[in-house]
């Protein structure tokens, strides 16, 4: 009779427990009752009993030699054991440091609020301009570049330049050009130019007293837009370089230098490898 097809795995497990006397008295009684009713179960029990007896009857192999340790073997076995925890801990510490570094950088890069760029997108006008005082004293020509009309309005300013009002540099930038009502259009004194930077939000508006001309855009009349203006033209005018407005992307500096990270990765790998080697030998 093929009992294997008739008996479930659960019944087989119960049968083994019954055979090994591992059932409780109650379960044993219940199983014996089922055993009386099921010829398949009875046959399975007979086969399993035979198997168990055969397994038990296997001869006990005599040991080929004693497995005791000599003094030298014992010393050899103990040698190098102290290194195992050392390398294990070193590897773990390196891994934790790496996890902290990468984790903090990930959080810093992905979840921190965008920072205002230290140096906003600036349009600079670099000129070989003499310093303020030198311009005044020597009467060096001063060049002005009119950026034509720029959409939008807003005030340039000298805010933050730290210069006195008399030498106020005219700001220019995203804000566009301020249009101020004026009465006079004459340019009375050379314009002091410095590097023109974009206005910041905190830029102070130009003082009204100073802007008395109309429509003066950076001190240029409207009909002079687009021209390079010179006052006291020089025979050898200095070249003017108008820098292309450049957008400076703020470079995110990593919190921890890459070298340090690489060293840590190397250390973790080295310590881990030695630890695994020692562990496998153990």
């Amino acid at each position: 009779m093929n009992w294997q097809a008739e008996i479930s795995e659960k019944e087989m497990t119960l049968l083994c427990e019954y055979l090994d006397d591992a059932l409780s008295i109650k379960d044993r009684a219940k199983f014996e009752k089922r055993l009386q009713q099921s010829p398949e179960l009875k046959e399975a029990l007979a086969d399993m009993t035979a198997l168990k007896n055969n397994m038990r009857s296997l001869p006990c192999k005599p040991v080929p030699h004693h497995f005791t340790l000599t003094r030298s073997e014992a010393e050899k076995a103990r040698r190098g054991l102290f290194l195992l925890p050392t390398f294990g801990w070193a590897s773990m510490v390196s891994m934790i440091l790496l996890a902290v570094i990468f984790g903090s950088e990930f959080i810093f890069n992905n979840f921190s609020a965008p920072q205002a760029p230290a140096e906003p997108a600036a349009m600079t006008l670099q000129m070989e301009a003499a310093p303020e005082n030198a311009t005044r004293d020597t009467g060096q020509p001063v060049y002005l570049l009119n950026w034509m009309s720029v959409g939008g309005k807003g005030g340039g300013g000298a805010g933050g330049s730290g210069l006195p009002m008399g030498s106020m540099a005219y700001g220019m930038g995203g804000g566009g050009i301020a249009e101020q009502p004026a009465e006079d259009t004459t340019l009375t004194e050379p314009m002091q130019t410095e590097e023109i930077t974009a206005p910041t939000e905190t830029a102070t508006p130009p003082v009204e007293e100073k802007i008395t001309v109309q429509p003066l855009i950076f001190g240029v009349r409207e009909d002079q837009l687009g021209q390079v203006l010179t006052i006291e033209p020089d025979e050898n005018p200095a070249p003017m370089v108008a820098a292309v407005p450049e957008v400076v992307e703020p470079v995110k500096e990593p919190l921890i230098p890459t070298n340090v990270k690489l060293i840590l990765v190397g250390l973790a790998a080295a310590f881990g490898s030695v630890w695994i080697l020692l562990k496998s030998r153990r």
């Binding site: 497990t13 083994c16 427990e17 086969d47 198997l51 055969n54």
Partner: peptide, 26 residues
């Protein structure tokens, strides 16, 4: 328990092929 049950079942199936070798015992 479950590993033992399955192991015994497999052993029994395997030993079936040796019944001719071990008739008396079984």
């Amino acid at each position: 328990k479950s590993r033992l049950a399955r192991a015994r079942l497999k052993m029994q199936q395997c030993l079936k092929g040796f019944r001719e070798l071990l008739p008396d015992q079984f």
